[in-house]
């Protein structure tokens, strides 16, 4: 498709007037000044509308008996482009694999959501959440307990049959 170019004509030199242009501009700013429709979001009181596909802080899904759903398959640390997931897997008496250590460094994470996409048991998710400020840097490395405690909604994955999430 050819690009359309809008040519802005310079005003005719004899017809420009600074004072009249100023008054016109002041009328415009006045219109905005009295316009009640402000864009400001009163943040802590009003929360922004996040998209259901917003990718924020992680959470780990939990079984009914309180165990993490993770089976320590090692796919998420493998796929993670920022290399921010540390996983040490273990195996119990019945041969079930489970994570002994599962840490996500939220500082390194780029919130691409690939861990959620790759997870075969839908255990690790990115979530619809962004208020993750902390007082120390250490607190940004989320361990397994912390990930299991998170209770914000999880991110909706992109569905190819419904590309716009409608």
């Amino acid at each position: 498709m050819a690009a359309t170019v809008k040519v802005m004509r310079r005003p005719d030199p004899g017809k420009t007037s600074y004072i009249r242009a100023t008054l016109k501009g002041m009328a415009l700013t006045f219109k905005h000044m009295v316009n009640p429709d402000k864009v400001t979001l009163q943040y802590p009181e009003e929360q922004p509308d996040l998209s259901p596909r917003w990718r924020g802080t992680h959470r780990m899904e939990v079984h009914a008996d309180g165990r993490p759903k993770c089976v320590a398959c090692g796919l998420c640390p493998t796929v993670c482009p920022a290399n921010c997931i540390r996983l040490v897997g273990g195996e119990d008496d019945q041969g079930n694999r489970y994570p002994i250590v599962y840490e996500i460094d939220e500082f390194r994470c780029i919130f691409c959501g690939m861990c959620q996409e790759v997870c075969p048991v839908e255990a690790i998710h990115v979530g619809v959440h962004f208020e993750n400020a902390e007082y120390t840097r250490e607190r940004f490395v989320y361990d397994l307990d912390r990930l299991m405690e998170q209770d914000h909604p999880t991110t909706l994955l992109w569905d190819p049959s419904d590309p716009r999430s409608e």
Binding site: P13, G14, T16, S17, Y18, I19, R20
Partner: peptide, 16 residues
């Protein structure tokens, strides 16, 4: 002043 002096004389862009 507004309609004669201020036509292209008061302040003009360099292009004009």
């Amino acid at each position: 002043f507004v309609f004669v002096v201020d036509s292209d004389r008061l302040i003009t862009g360099s292009a004009v």
